[in-house]
Amino acid sequence: MRLVTSFLLAFLLITQSGCVPWIVGTAVTATAIAMKDKSLGNIIDDTTIMIKINKSLLKHKLFMSIRVKVSEGRVLLIGNVDTPDKQIIAEKIAWKQEGVKEVINEIRVTPINTTSMIDTTIDGMITASIKTRLLGKHNIKSINYSINTIDRVVYLIGVAQNRAELRSVLSIARKTKGVKQVISYVRYRHSKLR
């Protein structure tokens, strides 16, 4: 309902004003924030942490190998590197950032060039399939989840409304064609750990 109301408000503002680009951007941002279970401050803090980590990874030539996801100061590092030293460097970079509460290091050490373009494409298709299936469920706030797949292992981080929602998300991820394993770092909305 909030989504429909937000879109109607945005449409009304667009048709009644000459400031179309500003209003559209503001309406879209407001809608996204209203749908998430995080404050604007949390979203800004998480984005700042992610940008700083990615900037440091770029300096160390690790940016292309590692993906960074941040949820309420919790950093998830995933990807493949060819040496344990690179795995440790990435974790140290994450811990150095102000506001980081936890670092979850799921970076795998694998021989160089073992991931093919086909594997990367399959991982992308798995992620897209899960995201699409979550969007179609009225009892799941899909915007609260970050979903990534590496070597057909699905990683989830974010905020679940309750146990039933998380069970549904995990079930969808596990039943998606090609998935080997699902690893969840999702917290409940009312968890004391948040």
Score class of each variant (00 low, 15 high):
residue 136 G to E: 15
residue 18 G to D: 08
residue 7 F to M: 05
residue 87 Q to A: 09
residue 179 V to W: 11
residue 140 I to K: 13
residue 112 I to L: 14
residue 166 L to G: 00
residue 194 R to Q: 05
residue 104 I to Q: 14
residue 12 L to M: 03
residue 77 L to H: 02
residue 53 I to R: 10
residue 6 S to K: 08
residue 84 P to D: 04
residue 28 V to C: 08
residue 175 K to W: 12
residue 87 Q to W: 01
residue 71 S to Y: 11
residue 142 S to L: 00
residue 146 S to N: 06
residue 122 I to G: 03
residue 177 K to T: 13
residue 36 K to F: 14
residue 149 T to S: 09
residue 56 S to M: 15
residue 90 A to C: 00
residue 177 K to N: 07
residue 100 V to E: 14
residue 165 E to V: 02
residue 1 M to V: 12
residue 12 L to F: 03
residue 154 V to L: 03
residue 61 K to S: 06
residue 53 I to H: 09
residue 88 I to R: 05
residue 140 I to P: 04
residue 136 G to F: 15
residue 154 V to E: 01
residue 188 Y to N: 10
residue 79 G to Q: 02
residue 188 Y to L: 14
residue 115 T to V: 13
residue 126 I to G: 09
residue 98 E to W: 15
residue 153 V to T: 02
residue 190 H to E: 10
residue 108 R to Y: 11
residue 102 E to A: 04
residue 105 N to V: 10
residue 148 N to M: 13
residue 18 G to H: 11
residue 61 K to I: 06
residue 61 K to F: 01
residue 74 R to D: 04
residue 26 T to V: 08
residue 64 M to S: 10
residue 24 V to K: 01
residue 21 P to Q: 05
residue 137 K to P: 04
residue 3 L to F: 15
residue 112 I to V: 15
residue 56 S to A: 15
residue 127 T to W: 10
residue 47 T to Y: 11
residue 44 I to D: 08
